[in-house]
């Protein structure tokens, strides 16, 4: 904890608040990007200039990028001490991949 190492807690607080404000700025930027990706995905669906077969992989890719932002910025997985969360979430994603793959190839009716 920073407050235990510093001699002046008031200076320390000012520094921490500045650091938090800076991080908040990054959060707002990633929010703007997420909104942008969402709008692109919605436009893609109604847009005639793109081949139909390309639309699905493209919007799925946009969703994956957006979720990475959500996990690593909004849910702070980019911070230190998130080895456990990384392990659990990526395991979940791995199981998701297997489950979706199995159901889409085995179920035919």
């Amino acid at each position: 904890m920073v407050s235990e190492n510093s001699r002046n807690p008031k200076v320390d607080l000012a520094f921490r608040r500045k650091k938090n404000a800076e991080e908040m700025k990054h959060q707002v930027v990633s929010f703007a990007l997420m909104i942008f990706l969402t709008i692109v995905a919605f436009i893609t669906v109604g847009y005639d200039g793109i081949d139909e077969w390309l639309k699905v992989p493209f919007i799925v890719l946009l969703a994956c990028i957006q979720v990475i932002f959500q996990l690593y910025y909004f849910m702070h997985m980019n911070h230190k001490g998130h080895e456990g969360p990384q392990f659990f979430i990526w395991s979940g994603i791995f199981v998701t991949f297997l489950t979706v793959l199995a159901f889409m190839t085995i179920v035919w009716w």
Binding site: I89, G92, V95, T96, V100, F103
Partner: peptide
């Protein structure tokens, strides 16, 4: 840490529902 374990489990719960829907 417990809550992240739970979220890993929730991911799997939704995985089954998504897979069913896609199929």
């Amino acid at each position: 840490i417990g809550f992240w374990v739970f979220l890993g489990g929730e991911t799997v719960l939704f995985a089954t529902l998504f897979a069913t829907f896609l199929a």
